[in-house]
Design a protein around this nucleic acid. Structure first.
Length: 297
DNA sequence: AAAAGTGCCAACCGCCACCCT
DNA sequence: AAGGGTGGCGGTTGGCACTTT
């Protein structure tokens, strides 16, 4: 843990308006905590002024949200949290605030740091040792590694690789997954050949196999630039990807369009799946059932 | 023991959207 | 409609702590 810097920089500016930057001192923390506990959150620039802090409101907000908030859960991420982060990231991509919203007591910054410093590296390492990874990791792996070049459809594979290399889910909608999500995550409790579409209100026709996790439109209310055309990549039981196109409603996925496929290669060992290998399975199978979800926010 | 390398994470930065005037 | 203030977000950086050489 970094120690507080008693000589935090003071930003250049006019006379009395000098604002401190850098690490927060314990005294500053005390001021902010005391003010917030007695007055609650208001306009952050006003908080900074009223609390007697030579900080910009933005800095106060960040400090409070990421470090001083009393409901924060400090300490290492549990394996369950880690699993959930990986799964949510596979669905939501780098939408850290939305991932954090599903992990009580954790901040977006914390999750982002954890992802960049730990999970990313772990997944990278795992990609070179597929025989030692957990079931969940096996299922997630294809999203983060390059695929073998055995696809008969190179453009489709390019698209898949683009997803993988950008860290976005294979299942991210091509033009903005802001209404619902889908992922190639496969339920380890199921045999690969038995996986079927699931998700609230999504895809009435089980004409394609695969696994689709519905993610509630947590941020979709009031969202701008909502796209009306969606494309979803889905793992199917033949170790290929399906691409499902929908018109404009998650309740009306009208067709399944298998525009290409990409073999997932030797690291896919779905036939060796064991039921009950990890307890978090039911939770991850359908994120929408997670009790912490706030669909209305 | 010291230098170099690496990991971790708090905090900053820039951008964008929203609200108000 | 335009512009300023503010909040929120994701990407990035800087520096401390730890590990390796």
């Amino acid at each position: 843990m970094r120690r507080t810097d008693p000589s935090a920089k003071v930003s250049s500016g006019g006379g009395a308006n000098k604002l401190r930057k850098g690490l927060w001192s314990p005294e500053e923390d005390d001021k902010l905590i005391n003010y917030m506990l007695s007055n609650g959150q208001g306009c952050w620039s006003e908080v900074a002024r009223s609390a007697g802090l030579q900080r910009c409101g933005k800095s106060c907000r960040l400090r409070w949200i990421n470090y001083l908030r009393p409901d924060l859960k400090r300490g290492a991420f549990s394996p369950q949290e880690e699993e959930l982060i990986v799964h949510l990231h596979s669905i939501l991509g780098n939408r850290w605030s939305q991932i954090a919203a599903r992990l009580p007591g954790r901040t977006d910054n914390e999750i982002k740091n954890f992802w960049n410093s730990t999970i990313k590296k772990r997944l990278k390492n795992l990609s070179s040792t597929p025989d030692t990874m957990s079931m969940q990791e096996q299922c997630m792996l294809p999203m983060y590694m390059d695929l073998p070049s055995t696809s008969s459809n190179s453009s489709f594979q390019s698209k898949v690789l683009n997803h993988a290399t950008t860290g976005n889910s294979l299942a991210m909608l091509e033009h903005g997954l802001d209404v619902f999500g889908a992922t190639g995550y496969i339920n380890p409790a199921s045999r690969a050949t038995e996986i079927t579409i699931n998700g609230d209100g999504f895809c009435g026709e089980n004409e394609m196999s695969g696994s689709v996790d519905y993610v509630p439109p947590l941020e979709s209310i009031g969202e701008k630039n909502r796209k009306t055309e969606h494309t979803v990549d889905v793992w199917n039981s033949n170790n290929t990807f399906n691409v499902i196109s929908s018109s404009n409603s998650r309740d009306n996925v009208s067709k399944s369009e298998n525009i290409g496929n990409a073999a997932v290669g030797d690291f896919w060992i779905g036939e060796e799946l064991q039921v009950g290998e990890w307890d978090f399975e039911d939770l991850l199978k359908d994120v929408s059932s997670f009790p912490f979800l706030d669909f209305q926010s």
